[in-house]
Amino acid sequence: MTTVIGTQGLTKRYGQLRAVDGIDLDVRAGDVYGFLGANGSGKTTTVRMLLGLVLPTSGSVQLLGEPMPRAARRVLPRVGALIEGPAHYGHLSGRANLALLDAAGPGGSRRTRTARVDTVLEQVGLAGVGRRPVKAYSLGMRQRLGLGAALLRRPELLVLDEPTNGLDPQGIHEIRDLLLDLHRGGTTVFLSSHLLAEVEQLCTRVGVLDRGRLVLQDQLATLTAPTGATIVETPDPERVRAALDGRVLRVGAGRAVVRGDDPAEVNAALVGAGVPVTGLALERPTLEEVVLAAASTSADRVDAPGERSRR
């Protein structure tokens, strides 16, 4: 699988502060990659280094197979980006802002500019307000316009920093559908976010940044794979313990977690023992649980001399 974003030992220091600490990103063609971390964890600094907007203190960046920032003039026309909220001319309309950006970029035909702008406004849900001055836009509308600017060149790689910031639930849903459509069309998406629920619905691969360190990087399906246990929903979880002595891992309100990855077998054993069962499901960790566990491991290791982040 072709690497679209690759970093080796990428580090950024500001005085004594190590904002990004030796990270090795691996984003592959066709990924929807969720770059996760709390505010202040170093996500935006990393994204800015990827695009050549900030120079690393040490380490290297490869973007679409080219070294950055040295190859920025060749690479960036193939990349769409939205970082730290969009910047626009407030007195101009959304349409005029996109037209100016299109004119400033390389390679776009003037003859087809109007069609490109119309297409993008439609994609991001601003077709009906494209002629309204941007100063009259809500935060969510400005965010949509920024995403539209990132899509003007039909990029091979889309790099987004908190793209659903300021959007209501309906807007978040629409942007999620748009990103999935772009992905199906062949665009690789790198999405920096702290919204775990959105990433869990959208991404195929995730990396977790904690205090500048990449503490986890893997396929989402691998991270949230079944644990080998079955969740039993029942009005009497203590009877599950009695019936399956030695196999019950945990008991809570209205449920028990039983060792075994065959719900049908667990159900047969309980029904045979006369235990009422109202539901069965394989136990899977949520992305939130995975991220919290990775961050906790990082906290345990942060003061150890010479330690490198787990990838």
Rank of each mutant, 00 (worst) to 15 (best):
A197G: 10
T187I: 10
T204E: 03
R176D: 14
Q170P: 00
P169L: 10
N165R: 03
E174C: 02
D168Q: 07
V257W: 03
G260Y: 09
H173M: 07
E233G: 08
H173R: 15
V208T: 09
R250H: 11
L216Q: 12
T222R: 10
A264F: 00
R255F: 15
V215M: 00
G166L: 11
A243D: 09
R176S: 14
R247Q: 15
L223T: 06
A221D: 14
D236R: 05
V248M: 10
V206S: 06
R211A: 11
L180H: 12
L178S: 01
R213S: 12
R213C: 15
D236Y: 02
Q201V: 01
G260S: 14
D261L: 06
I175G: 04
G212W: 04
G254Q: 10
P226Q: 13
L179Y: 06
V248T: 12
A253C: 00
R184S: 05
C203A: 11
E200R: 13
R205N: 04
G228T: 12
E200A: 15
N165M: 01
L182Q: 10
R255E: 15
L196R: 09
G252V: 07
D245I: 00
L178T: 02
Q170C: 00
R176C: 11
V208R: 14
P263N: 13
F190T: 02
V232C: 14
D262H: 08
P235W: 09
T204N: 08
L214A: 04
V206D: 04
A243R: 06
T187R: 01
D262L: 05
G185T: 07
D181E: 10
R241T: 11
A225N: 06
L202F: 04
R250F: 01
G166Y: 02
G166N: 13
A221R: 14
G171V: 12
G166P: 02
L220H: 07
D168G: 05
A256C: 07
V240S: 09
E198A: 13
E238I: 01
L249I: 13
H194L: 06
Q170A: 14
E174R: 03
R213L: 10
A253F: 04
D262Y: 02
V189G: 03
E174G: 02
D261R: 13
G260F: 06
L209A: 03
D210A: 15
L244W: 13
T188E: 01
E233D: 14
L180Q: 13
E265C: 06
Q201W: 05
H173I: 00
Q219W: 08
V189P: 05
D262E: 15
H173Y: 12
D261A: 15
L191E: 01
D210H: 15
R176W: 07
H173P: 00
V248A: 11
L214V: 07
D262N: 14
A229N: 11
P163N: 07
R211L: 04
P226K: 12
G212V: 03
R255I: 02
L178R: 00
R211H: 11
V232N: 12
L167E: 02
H173K: 07
D218Q: 10
L202G: 03
L220W: 01
E265W: 09
A221I: 08
A242F: 06
L244A: 15
C203L: 05
N165S: 09
L182A: 00
G252F: 09
Q219Y: 07
